[in-house]
Design a binder for these strands. Sequence first.
DNA 1: CGCCGAGTTGACTGAAGTCAAGTGTAGTGG
DNA 2: CCACTACACTTGACTTCAGTCAACTCGGCG
Lengths: 239, 239
Amino acid sequence: MSLAVPTLRSCADCPIRYNAVCSRCEPDELDQLEEIKYYRSYAAGQTIFFNGDPLEFVGSIVSGVSSLTRTLPDGRVQMVGLLLPGDFIGRPHRETIDCDVIAETDVMLCCFRRKPFEAVIENTPHVGQRLLEMTLDELDAAREWMLVLGRKTAREKIASLLHMIATRMASLKPGETAATTFTLPITRETMANYLGLTIETVSRQMSALKKDGLIAFDERRDIRVPDLEALKAETGEDA
Amino acid sequence: MSLAVPTLRSCADCPIRYNAVCSRCEPDELDQLEEIKYYRSYAAGQTIFFNGDPLEFVGSIVSGVSSLTRTLPDGRVQMVGLLLPGDFIGRPHRETIDCDVIAETDVMLCCFRRKPFEAVIENTPHVGQRLLEMTLDELDAAREWMLVLGRKTAREKIASLLHMIATRMASLKPGETAATTFTLPITRETMANYLGLTIETVSRQMSALKKDGLIAFDERRDIRVPDLEALKAETGEDA
DNA sequence: CGCCGAGTTGACTGAAGTCAAGTGTAGTGG
DNA sequence: CCACTACACTTGACTTCAGTCAACTCGGCG
């Protein structure tokens, strides 16, 4: 399952030191975590956990993008979470995992065996407090997404996803202003599973938004948004 | 806003003593909470918080049912949470609330002003640990609901909601075996808002399930489920 | 008694799904 | 170097499920 494990690194120069579950830790708490941590790597497309797997470890995404999906017996798939660097996988005091966890890109995890990690939560305040805050943020995001899934049209769903990705990308390079260009990190199928649509509908709505001048692309994954506000007006969230 | 406030009661004989945010508290922790708690009552239909309101208190539902909803500018509504007795309203360290909170039935809340409650979380372990566990449960429920909203048919959505309410109600009164009879705590419109459907579709699917013998009702809100397993088979979750 | 709101039912419409055929690109092996 | 395959994506024709609009019942209440 794992690829080559990277050379062990110290928490001090970890890229997610200040937004992961460990971000509030005092030095002595960090020492406790450092004792039980280890790294694992996964290639794009690999499954990190299958639904029902025993939850032997929990951990943080150090780099890459991972998705949580649930599948109905007849094969219908719904993505229920998108995990970025710093996000947490697994939950304490749960014996098994109840969705598939898939590496959408190459992923590196900082793992803790579950039982020792539960002990850390019992014994130190800051890990549990940070985990509570992160879980509340995830709950807010999930509720936002329920509105998209339950009440938006296909066109609005696509516009919402593109607008979310565009603004997130734009916030990473704050020099640029109105027009934004980015490479979609996910396939049409992944978009469809996120939005509760079929790939055909995704494709048609992408073409329609292109025809209407709201987005532009030649290479299928390289998207240009000439006017972010115009795209936002298509999400249904604007008055 | 508030109706007549009930006579103050002690935590010892509180109906949600063993499943609310305080359920893990040691006697001294309970004393701390008892010092800052107060009760509020709301009539069915009242709004407890409007979207954007300052979050001055948090608290537990002692009795009744409350909903969380989000609304698009053109009026489309999506319910994003259904809170039953023991469930928690509000989140620590958040200045405002980002959805509407509505009393679906008469509701009694056990409230704590937010700032003192945050202090309790900092100073005692068991409130934060229990709140983390409850929030993780809510996140699981939200993800389960994303699958319902994104991928299920109208009939499967209705069956899923009825099955969920039947099982949750059953868990609240552990004396009865398989609670196959319950009173729907919500209107058809509320059901529609929860399921991402119209009231007409809800009504039609309720009639269809009734015709197929999966549920029975004369009074529109008093539902009898003769065979919980048969209902579950209609949710799409059974193989 | 008439009004109102909750709910039901019917006729029709339309948005998204299904099925099918196609393009374009990348990789593989003879 | 060119088939051959595989995969991601697009497009078209048709179907269907749920939405829209409208008429109706039922019960409660001033």
